[in-house]
Amino acid sequence: MFVLKVKKQEEIFELINNKKTFVFICEGCNEIFLYREEITKFLDSLSKENIIDTKIVDYICNPEYIKNYFEIFKKTIDLSDIILIFSCGVGVQTANKISNLPVYTGCDTLHIPGYKGVETVADENYDCILCGNCYLNYTANICPLTSCPKELLNGPCGGAKNGKCEIDNKKDCSWEKIFEKLKKYNNFEKIKNEILTRKF
């Protein structure tokens, strides 16, 4: 799941710098949560002369589609100096590949844990970062890489206070959780005997 945060207005103003701008807003993809109102408000605050056209499309991360969009809106794109895109990082990069004009982005892409299972992200950091070497067998099927800020593999760091993490007292120490579960399964054998290191 990803959240698109609209960049600070001054930053985008500086980029546009009175150039004629064509705006693409990428919508549709369900993984992306776009602050639609913020974008509309921002675009409204720009002067009408600067914005040549605003088009709402979907999946500009697909090179075939964005090629298609450039063709469909050729008339107004040809009048523009720059292209401003509100989409995730992939969309901007794909558009840049096709475009002859400078492509700027108005968004920051943030990742929030959990991809599809909608409830899965409800109570804790629960994610897979594709590390390439799954440790879940040692850690009671709770991933310490995604749930521990220090990504510790061999046990808790001692920074927990009242069962909460040292970097955030609202967050449960994930190693305490792992430990609890290991106790329940009574399965310390594997993790006790292995010294786990990341394989980058």
Binding site: N154, G155, G158, A160, E176, F179, K192, N193, I195
Partner: peptide
């Protein structure tokens, strides 16, 4: 290092053992 007065002594001991083994 080890924290003997923490409320989670079990997990400290567990990690201590790993440290000793290491």
């Amino acid at each position: 290092a080890v924290a003997p007065e923490t409320e989670y002594l079990d997990s400290q001991i567990f990690k201590m053992e790993k440290k000793i083994n290491a």
